[in-house]
Design a protein around this nucleic acid. Sequence first.
RNA 1: GUGGAUAUAGUUCAGUUGGCUAGAGCGCCAGAUUGUGGCUCUGGAGGCCGUGGGUUCGAGCCCCACUAUCCACCCCA
Length: 440
Amino acid sequence: MKEQKVKPSILPGFMELLPKDQILFNKMMDTIRRNYEKYGFVPLDTPLIEKSEVLLAKGGGETEKQIYRFTKGDTDLSLRFDLTVPLARYVAQHFSELNFPFRRYHIGKVYRGERNQKGRFREFYQCDIDIIGNGKLSIINDAEIPSIIYSTFKDLGFEDFTIHINNRKILNGFFESVKVDKKIEVLRIIDKLEKIGYDAVIKELEEIGIEKDSIERIMEFIGIKGSNDDILLKLKELNIENEQFLLGLDELNKVVHYIRCFNVPEKNFIIDLTIARGLDYYTGTVYETILNNYPQIGSVCSGGRYDNLAEFYTDQKLPGVGISIGLTRLFYQLREAEIIGENASSTLSEVLLIPMGETLDYSIEVANSLRNEGIVCEIYYEDAKIGKKFAYADKLNIPYVILIGEDELQRKMVSLKNMSTGAQNIIEISEAAETIKNRL
RNA sequence: GUGGAUAUAGUUCAGUUGGCUAGAGCGCCAGAUUGUGGCUCUGGAGGCCGUGGGUUCGAGCCCCACUAUCCACCCCA
């Protein structure tokens, strides 16, 4: 009788990686963290689980349906579905102990119980930065955010990407000026322009009952193209007298000005009147970042300005601006597109030490010396044929092997083998360390 | 929540109009004179063919139900 085994599997929508991918993933996360810290953001970590009353304070259908919610005893618990709501709670709770503007970054997992789909996960990492002001927050912050995006994606190894920038006030003001009241619906539709195309947008606008005349003006408006200065000029020349519109245009002018001060190249950011962001809490500047060689991936980093972060937890007026990188999705899609992962290694080890015969004591001594030099190494302790030990180094892509037998022990030296060239010679430990450190 | 597909070895997939003991690649294990990996060769392990019912002399294949997974819409990172 065979024992019945439990099938090893994880829930759909949860991603776990093999070592070679996890190493890449962690490198990306380190790069993002380093960039966030470079701009003076402080780290924050909050519980994965929050009280349901806290997470659900805002109410509203879509997110609420996606929340993982359960009870333990009498406690009503929920898994966080983003990092912004916990931030709001945190800032409201510790308001008196924090210094404003509060600049924090937060890298962590969030949970959404959605129907499964390609590139969509139920558990995924978000890498957020937000700047929260007490009462007010300078528009220059809105310009610094793209600078951080630029620096980060540059460091991640991308050259050709564009940060699309828009301002909700301009959109809202414009809609008011053409007498459109279904602003949120219209925003959602024009946000889809890139995806569904010009004609489909018109069709959808007709379907929700927008006047032909208004549709024409909307399409004309979102069709405004050109350089950043061109667009700013064209917007001004629309001569719209709406207060919101003019406020938004003024903000956008300042944002563009200061982005240039931050030395973000002109080719890496563009005013794009079609991006709106679905989320209804954005009130000013909004961002989306597109990798130009892979537009099908969609936005890899998005965010914007909001008026009041923590209105459900405090009377304090806390405006903020922030962005989020969906690292899990970004990584997944980069790997799917075979942009990364080509020559990935399955280990961090730079060298494998293979002891032969009674040389373990000496081998450990060698490993100690190498590690003191900052070299990542491991020793193969198991009893096996030498061929199997070399095969281990080979399969893990460990670039060097150090072979330690009786001969090496006697001479207090090591045999260093370069696994890609096959070259091998007996040298001093210090010389081996130098060789390994100097590779590439 | 709505719509559409799929389910065979660890994995990716074959499997003819229903017919003998269900196959292949990759991976895994072992070997090809025991101080040398990749390449090659030889051998081996590994399957309730998603689950339950039905049709049939006979079902991996046909029918029904269930379950699971995937894809798209909605929404989002």
